[in-house]
């Protein structure tokens, strides 16, 4: 429509003729600031939006978690901008086929619980896999949307930026909420102190070791031994089977079962650089089952 532009603009100008321009309100106007730390607010809001949020204070813990968690997937489509250390040990697949998409966010926004993604890593890996994992650096968790949008300011860094604030959802069928309608049905946001540091040492991260770095025979050798917990409670290793260790507490006579899988997970974390210095750390980084006795087993083996 060669003349359409001219005609439309002429009509617009004629419509505005003789009217005073309305001044723009001063601003950018900022909504009232909520109290609280940005990462905490971000996590709360993203969770309320339906996202899953993990916060790692040590790179090792994040990598260990990744190795463990990724085992549930057959393949992944991973952003080239994710440092090697944070790439799940999975066969690569196209976004259309991958079970997991992995992104690196430019930023996150506390006010809205959003992550800001860039098309420079590819758009489809953010959209097609049923599960989307997004790595965010702690320092890139910003308070307000405007701070994240500044990225668009001068020269937009990519052809498409996107804010993702939760899993794909729709209530179009009878007002009943359904997740994963077109985009990912799960959004997992993992916050780490830095993605840069990890890039250097990334290559050293081991893949999932079937033995988990734990010598099970050493655990077997504990059978019948009397041990003490960190707080001094005494207990006995009653028996060790192929997959469990059963302990009996001296004072109460109660027995607890400790799964091999959990002990292996703890050893992996330790190998990845996360010190597990007591039952609390064991619970946080491995399992929440009988942590006092499980940690004491590891301690007895000089593993923790």
């Amino acid at each position: 429509m060669p003349d359409a532009k001219r005609r439309i603009l002429r009509r617009v100008r004629r419509a505005l003729e003789g009217r005073w321009p309305v001044e723009a309100p001063t601003g950018p106007w900022r909504p009232a600031v909520e109290e609280g730390e940005a990462v905490e607010r971000f996590s709360a809001h993203a969770r309320a939006n339906g996202a899953e949020v993990l916060r790692f204070t040590e790179p090792g813990a994040a990598r260990a978690w990744l190795a463990d968690w990724a085992a549930g997937f057959a393949s992944a489509a991973v952003s080239p901008q994710v440092p090697a250390a944070y790439v799940p040990p999975l066969p690569a697949a196209t976004p259309a086929e991958a079970e997991l998409g992995v992104s690196r966010a430019l930023a996150a926004v506390a006010d809205t619980g959003s992550v800001l993604l860039s098309s420079s890593e590819g758009r489809l890996l953010q959209l097609l896999p049923p599960v989307h994992l997004v790595w965010v650096e702690e320092t890139r968790v910003l308070r307000h949307l405007a701070e994240a949008l500044e990225a668009l300011g001068g020269e937009p860094p990519a052809s498409a930026l996107a804010l993702h604030s939760g899993p794909s959802k729709s209530a179009d069928i009878g007002q009943i909420m359904v997740q994963g309608v077109h985009g990912p049905g799960r959004l997992i946001i993992a916050i780490v102190p830095s993605l840069e540091d990890a890039a250097g040492e990334g290559k050293t991260v081991p893949g999932p070791d079937p033995a988990g770095g734990l010598d099970w025979d050493a655990v077997r050798s504990l059978a019948g031994r009397d041990l003490t917990t960190k707080r001094g409670g005494s207990f006995t290793v009653e028996r060790v089977t192929e997959n469990t260790a059963v302990v009996r507490v001296g004072s109460s006579g109660k027995t607890y079962t400790i799964r091999r899988h959990c002990l292996e997970k703890a050893v992996q974390r330790i190998a990845a650089g996360t010190p597990i210095s007591g039952p609390a750390a064991y619970r946080r980084h491995a399992c929440n089952e009988a942590p006092a006795y499980a940690w004491a087993l590891l301690h007895a083996l000089d593993l923790a």
């Binding site: 809205t112 959003s114 668009l152 937009p156 996107a162 993702h164 604030s165 899993p167 794909s168 959802k169």
Partner: peptide
Amino acid sequence: QKIGTFVSL
């Protein structure tokens, strides 16, 4: 909602 789940820029 606080923001639309997907915002394209």
